[in-house]
């Protein structure tokens, strides 16, 4: 009995193909039932996310080319796909299948290396198959090990450390300046999509009060309502500087809307409390000279992107360490399986 994988992911197939092969969650138990009834596999788990569609299975057959051709046929027939498939669909037999499973669980095969969402998705896929009794000793053991390895990698390496998006880099900066974000108010100048995302990221880390201002008051009110904050007239935003500690600016103004001369008296009124300014507008909304003022920390989109890129590089540097952990765990699992199944020992 060995573990095999067949599937396609963001690495091998475009989104048009991935969505063509995606499984609807409610149909997964039936698909697994059919697969097992085909006699090809004895156990199975289907993982279907926006970035990958994969079948993890345990089979008593020899996983050679003929076996994988039959599984591929099942895969394409199940989705009524009559086109040609080449390298888009990959297949793995042991030990590569286990190696792949462990990498997926640890987020090493994800689009954003080290992301944790896939861990939850894999766990959910496994639980669904487990509840429907489509898993057995082999897959249970493989998945449990995969979850343990992912946790170990998370604890022992820096693979999940840091912000890899502009929004989360802004949050991390805020946390380097303020003790607790819960006590600080955020002002959004220009109700754009990135501002909204950044505000939501700040909210997820405790920010409670958000004020939105926009040239169109309606748009400001609509975003404020979505974020549970309040809207103010665009002409009134400088008055807010006495209260707020973080400002995110992303207007379409062709010139600076905040410069040193305008901010200096506002800082005096703030009694020099630290102020974090996030300027994600292009062209920039805030004059870089304001960063020369005491207690003002100005970051533009390039600064944030550079933080995110550095974190990404740090994560990529950690991949080798993670691979080492995974290689050791795969060998240990294969060894344990060999002892559990004396027939394989020969």
């Amino acid at each position: 009995m060995s573990v095999v994988v067949i599937g396609l992911s963001h690495r091998s197939a475009p989104v048009e193909l991935r969505e063509r092969f995606a499984f609807v969650e409610t149909n997964i138990p039936d698909a697994l039932k059919q697969l097992r009834e085909s006699g090809l596999v004895t156990e199975g788990v289907v993982l279907s996310t926006c970035n990958r569609v994969e079948i993890y299975a345990a089979t008593a057959l020899v996983p050679d080319d003929q076996f994988f051709a039959r599984v591929k046929k099942f895969f394409t027939e199940h989705h009524a796909y009559d086109g040609e498939l080449g390298d888009e669909l990959y297949t793995f037999a042991e030990p590569h299948s286990l190696h792949h499973l462990f990498k997926v669980a640890a987020g090493l095969d994800s689009m954003v290396i080290g992301e944790t969402e896939i861990f939850g998705q894999l766990k959910k896929a496994y639980e669904l198959a487990f509840q429907q009794k489509h898993t057995g000793v082999r897959l249970n053991k493989a998945f449990q090990r995969a979850f343990n390895v992912a946790k170990q990698i998370r604890t022992e390496t820096n693979i999940q450390r840091g912000s890899v998006s502009v929004m989360s880099a802004a949050v991390e900066l805020a946390e380097k300046i303020f003790i607790s974000l819960a006590e600080h108010e955020v002002l959004i100048i220009g109700a754009g999509e990135t501002s909204e995302k950044t505000a939501r990221a700040l909210q997820s880390r405790g920010v409670k009060k958000i004020t939105v201002t926009n040239r169109s008051l309606e748009r400001a009110q609509s975003l404020a309502a979505e974020l549970g904050g309040r809207a103010v007239l665009f002409e009134q935003w400088p008055d807010e500087f006495e209260r707020i500690d973080i400002a995110i600016s992303s207007t379409a103004a062709p010139h600076h809307i905040l410069d040193r001369a305008k901010l200096e008296p506002l800082m005096k009124r703030r009694r020099h409390r630290p102020l974090l300014l996030i300027d994600i507008a292009v062209p920039r909304d805030i004059d870089p000279a304001v960063n020369e003022l005491d207690n003002v920390y100005l970051y533009n989109v390039d600064d944030l992107q550079s933080i995110a890129s550095d974190y990404l590089k740090q994560r990529q540097d950690e991949v080798a360490r993670c691979e080492q952990i995974i290689a050791g765990k795969v060998s240990a699992l294969l060894e344990a399986n060999k002892f559990a199944n004396p027939a394989v020992r020969g």
């Binding site: 840091g162 912000s163 880099a169 991390e172 900066l173 946390e175 380097k176 300046i177 303020f178 003790i179 630290p274 960063n291 920390y297 970051y299 600064d303 550079s306 933080i307 550095d310 974190y311 740090q314």
Partner: peptide
């Protein structure tokens, strides 16, 4: 480090400047 956008400001494990 924060003022001059040094990457180590965010990468370091130092507490926040307010604290």
């Amino acid at each position: 480090d924060l003022k001059f956008h040094k990457i180590r400001a965010v990468l370091s494990q130092l507490p926040s400047i307010q604290r």
